[in-house]
Design a protein around this nucleic acid. Structure first.
Length: 603
RNA sequence: CGGGGUGUAGCGCAGUUGGAAGCGCGCUGCGUUUGGGACGCAGAGGUCCGGGGUUCAAGUCCCCGCACCCCGACCA
């Protein structure tokens, strides 16, 4: 590609909007342009890199038996109603009506479409197992897109769907993906770890997320420093320290003026926060068939713990969960700052109340809780005697320093970006959409599904995040839009020669043709720009190998040769340059290949 | 959805007390330059986010919207 005709421009300064290095550099180098919040155009350079990423995905998924296809971006709402996700998913689903006033859905993911397809196509165990995948645009109306391509609303994802006759088959395909995903990430040059994750809106049994660790990441992970166990903070279990068992003491109401926080209360009564009960108020939408019921949630946990909203959502099987407002707290008859499950009115005009209690509370005796009376708390409250729980579950968020349930080690917190995930869906979709096959014995059985996704744009951004310096991007050879950046520095010209092609141009043009003939992908800077401009653009775009053709070098028949990731330059005779480049490409590819290793499966 | 911020040329920004819309980079033409974002001359480019209002006069003050960014909530 000649840069004089490349549809892309570098920018000296990044837009003020950009903060993350990957975002700034991808914009400055001309890989992406923004259309709206979380909606980007992928420019030619970016498209070439994304295509390479997607081809790596194709190779690896084909290698484990995948068959590529394409499924629609626009879905009739019927299939989403069948699985109930039409009702369960909130505002992040893109909905519209077609001209016949039919409800339509913009694809967020394709389980419903796959399920509809296979209930029509698959009838016999002979058709199983199968693995289908596609690389397709998705729309998720994220409430807060940010960080360039890391978190967008419209994005392209490779997602595969495994179809099996039995659970052993699912395990096998899940394991195959587990490794194939590591291979994909490693071939793109980025280190990742696999962690246990929440199944979220996907439903199903087991799930792993692949996390690229970076301080700019938006997910918090807990990693055990003893055994290496890693989990998303949303699901991480941990060892809770119960208080010693003691006899229940009688309830006692005490005045606690201006103690609206746990910290204030503990200080006022000079007791540890662990001796208090914290009440957190949420309003949840809980799906019931085709509609959903709003409920007021009273979550009780020990004062020294933090509520994990994902765990609470899962305990409630809620579709939406948000903090209650002060007006709502008052409306159910509780007293903000001094609220408690004890002494709540049995009925209220506002919403039904659900009391959800953390599983540490039954083992915690004589806690201090609010009295539902401004300025007063109750001493010695006890679950079972003083109030009842509707649900008891693990509700608390693990934090750095908490104890690992596997080995007793302690957790550290790190940040990461989720670049891929794999789910054992099981029969969640087969059941709701009637996807069955006939087994050897003639019985109808549900097809067992798995789903596996990687976002290509987010992966590109993660690679850009991992490989850059103060001058620009530094692409791994496998992802670089071109392998070689050929810089031509035109010679000084006398007045009469202007416009004619000089020796340097001739040599550079020839080298460009030779590179192409040798199958090397080259970006040729044939523009009339000063050397500084060309070198800075080359550094910014970040192709792995740079060749410079100049009068200075040509005098001795030499071409300058430099790797983007190294400082040193070499001068190589013209006749040897193609071989040198090919050898370097092979060496760079070997460097990446060396990173593709077997990963232990974390059950 | 809560909190904060920003909207002026393609990009980065300035714009005083309310009184003629500017600077740097980029862009066009000509010339001089040519190994790390050169220089001169001449140009083009504006819905000052939008709508109302106050005023003799609004980029500037007031009201209402919108967009984008950041933190949180949320989220495969």
């Amino acid at each position: 590609m000649r840069m004089s005709t490349l549809f892309s421009q570098t920018l000296r300064e990044a837009p003020a909007d950009a903060e993350m290095p990957s975002h700034k550099l991808l914009v400055r180098a001309g890989f992406i342009r923004q259309l709206a919040a979380g909606i980007y155009t992928i420019m030619p350079l970016g498209k070439r890199s994304i295509t390479k990423i997607e081809n790596i995905m194709r190779e690896e998924i084909n290698a484990i038996g995948g068959q590529e296809m394409t499924m629609p971006v626009v879905h009739p709402a019927e299939v989403w109603k069948e699985t109930k996700r039409w009702y369960q998913i909130g505002s992040e689903m893109g909905r519209f009506k077609d001209k016949h006033d039919r409800d339509m859905v913009l694809a967020m993911t394709h389980e419903e479409v796959v399920a509809d397809l296979i209930r029509k196509e698959i009838h016999s165990y002979r058709q199983l197992p199968a693995l289908i995948y596609h690389i397709q645009t998705k729309w998720r109306d994220d409430p807060r897109p940010r960080a360039g391509l890391i978190r967008v609303r419209e994005f392209t994802m490779k997602d595969s769907y495994s179809l099996d006759a039995d659970w052993e088959g699912l395990d096998k395909q899940y394991r195959a993906h587990y490794q194939a995903y590591f291979d994909i990430f490693h071939r793109c040059g980025i280190p990742v770890i696999a962690v246990k994750s929440d199944v979220g809106m996907m439903g199903g049994k087991m799930a792993h997320e692949y996390m690229y660790l970076t301080p700019f990441g938006e997910d918090t992970l807990l990693i055990c420093n003893g055994c290496g166990y890693a989990a998303n903070r949303q699901v991480a279990p941990f060892e809770k320290k119960a208080l010693p068992e003691e006899a229940m003491l009688p309830l006692e109401k005490v005045a606690t003026p201006d103690c609206k926080t746990i910290a204030g209360l503990a200080e006022f009564l000079t007791i540890p926060e662990a001796r208090t009960a914290k009440a957190v108020f949420m309003v949840a939408d809980i799906p019931e068939g085709e509609s959903s019921a709003q409920k007021f949630v009273f979550a009780i946990l020990r004062g020294d713990m933090e509520l994990n909203e994902t765990k609470l959502t899962n305990a409630l099987k809620a579709s939406e969960l948000r903090p209650a407002t002060e007006e709502e707290i008052i409306a159910i008859g509780a007293t903000p700052g001094y609220a408690s499950p004890i002494g709540l009115p049995k009925t209220n005009a506002y919403l039904p109340v659900v009391i959800v209690v953390d599983d540490l509370i039954p083992e915690s005796y004589n806690l201090v809780a609010g009295a539902n009376d401004a300025g007063y708390h109750l001493l010695n409250t006890n679950l079972g005697r003083d109030y009842q729980a509707d649900i008891i579950a693990d509700l608390t968020a693990a934090r750095a320093g908490d104890v690992c349930t596997v080995c007793g080690g302690s957790f550290e917190e790190v940040r990461g970006v989720e670049v891929g995930n794999i789910f054992k869906l099981g029969t969640r979709y087969s059941d709701s959409m009637g996807c069955t096959y006939q087994d050897k014995d003639g019985k109808e059985k549900p097809i067992i599904m798995g789903s596996y996704g990687i976002g290509s744009g987010r992966l590109l951004a993660a690679v850009a995040e991992e490989y850059n310096d103060e001058y620009g991007l530094i692409w791994p050879i496998t992802i670089a839009p071109y392998q070689v950046h050929l810089v031509m520095l035109p010679a000084k010209k006398g007045a009469g020669e202007r416009g004619s092609e000089g020796d340097v141009e001739k040599a550079a043009n020839q080298l460009y043709l030779d590179l192409q003939a040798a199958g090397v992908e080259a970006l040729y800077d044939d523009r009339e720009e000063s050397p500084g401009v060309k070198f800075n653009d080359a550094d910014l775009i970040g192709l792995p190998i740079r060749l410079t053709v100049s009068e200075r070098g040509l005098r001795d028949g030499l071409i300058e040769y430099k790797r983007r990731d190294r400082k040193e330059k070499r001068m190589i005779p013209r006749g040897e340059i193609i071989e040198a480049v090919k050898a370097e490409i092979a060496a760079l590819e070997a460097e990446i290949q060396a990173k593709v290793v077997e990963a232990p499966f974390d059950e």
